[in-house]
Structures are given as structure tokens and as C-alpha cells.
Amino acid sequence: MLDIIFSEHTLITGLGLATPLLFCALGGSICSKAGNFNIALEGFMLIGAFFGVVGSYFFKSPLAGVLLAVAASLAASMLYGLFLLQFKAHEVILGFGFNMFAIAITGWLLEPVFGGKGSFYDPSIPSLKAIDIPVVGQIPVLRCLSGHNILVYLGWASVIVLYLLLYKTAPGYKMRALGENKDAISTNGLSALKYAYLVEMLVGVCCGLAGAYLSIGGLTMFTENMTAGRGFIAVAAVGFSGAYIPLAALASIVFGIANAVAIQLQGLGMPTQFVDMIPYILTILMLLPEMYKHKKI
């Protein structure tokens, strides 16, 4: 029984499940460092997921799907930025509104675009292909790292790229300064607003990729509200890791694997509802370390 749960297959599933979380957590970490508690990740991701299918369906190319997903999510995040930064909307309520908006608009579009209600699935639409890494694919256990689609590898690469961007480059310095002392930017005569928008752009791209992975990463399909709270799981992972990118990435991957393990429980006769609950319960567990931080106040 245990060997079913802790098999290489579970590991592979876990890495897959972790990918959308990873992207979102990366975006969320940047937001958090820049002083924005962003709960709209969920909405951006859902919009990305929808347009991923649209791109893939109409251009017959998964790559076009990814690009369209990123573009749509980016547009949403810029709109979010406009309302947050320029119209000074309340962070939580705005994020809540955006999530509602994402569900509503993807639900609305489903019918005219695909002519169906609730969900859309068409096996003929191309999805992202799995790519094998040469040598690694032969080594036991390590071979779990191989055979994923391009977005999974991109996710791992993004951890490094975004880390370097945030901690080693001049724009990264400014983005981090946003969250700590905005005036340090403006008294040097630069526009803090510009960097705040840059942050929103980055989170838009990240969530777009997350969405694309969900809808065209494996099966090509879209169902209403298919993100099912993954954005919040990412937000929790960001909080758990103190928005430190490597730690947030690690948290997402561990979460993905834990989730994959949990899914195996269904095979052992656990009711589906309880299996579906597991990610939410894991998320709540991730919130708990905040208790210790809180004691400092």
C-alpha cells in the first residue's frame, strides 16, 4: 500500500500539480515583497487558463495558447494594477472582485466561443508535449524530473531567473524597496508607480503561465472555476515562506507532492469529497506557522 502512495508516479504527478502553484507563488512573492497582498492570483490564473484553450483551439498550436494565456492574464493584472495603484481600491475587496469577475467572464465567454456550458473538452486540440531530458530520463527516481512539458521546466527556471531579478538587479532593488520604503524611490526622483506596475506585470505573466499549465498542460480542457482555490493556496505558500522566492518555490513543490500522495488515498476507498478537501486542509496547515510570527508583535 505504501509503495503505491510513494511511487515515482506519485512524484511525477506531484511535480505537475506543483507547477501552477509554483508560478502563482512566484508572482505572489514578488507582489508581497513590493507590499501588495494580492489575492487576485486566482482570477488571473483562471483567465489565463481560459485563453490558453482559446489560443490552442483557434491557432491549433499549444504555444499560441500559452502566449494568449499570458497576454490575457497580463491584461487582467494591469487592470488590477490600475484600480489598486491609481484608483486606490481596497486590496482585499478588489482582489475578491477580480476573482468574481474572472469566474463570470470566463463563464460568459464559454458559450459564444466554444458553444457549450459549464465546461469544454476536445481531445483534438493540441496540448503541450512532454519533453524528455536525455541522460536524466535513465536514472531511477531522478527520472521523475524528466518527461514533463515545457512549462514545468520553465517554472523551475523562473525560480532562478526571478530570484536573480529581484535580488541582484537594479529594477529588483526598486521593487523590493516598494514594500519597505516607497519614498526612497520617489525622493530619488524615480516613479514608484512605474515599478509597482512592473510588479503587476510580472505577476500577470506568472499567473498566465500557471493558467496555461492548467488548461493545456495535460488534457486540453476548461471547466468553470477550474482553478478551484489554487490561487489561495499560492497566497498561503507565499505567507508561509515569508515571500522568499526559493522557499516559496520549495513550499509549492512540497505541497504538490503532498497533494499527489493524498490523491492516492482515493484508490484506497476514501470518498471523493474528502480527497478534494485535502489541498484546502493542507493550505490551512500552511497558514499556521504565522502564529509564531504573530507572537513577536
Binding site: 541582484k168 523590493r176 524615480l190
Partner: peptide, 25 residues
């Protein structure tokens, strides 16, 4: 003070006028 608490003294000193090596500070 217009300083960023988590940055070092040197990082604050050159903030927004950073010397660069390639694309990195």
C-alpha cells in the same frame, strides 16, 4: 530617512544609481 531597512548600507548608498556589472548590480 529615505532608506530601505533590509538593504545594506552600501546598497542604500547607491540605490537608484547602482554601479553595474553586466545586468547585475
Amino acid at each position: 530617512f529615505m532608506l530601505v531597512p533590509s538593504f545594506s548600507v552600501a546598497e542604500n548608498l547607491v540605490f537608484t544609481y547602482e554601479p553595474k556589472k553586466g545586468i547585475f548590480v
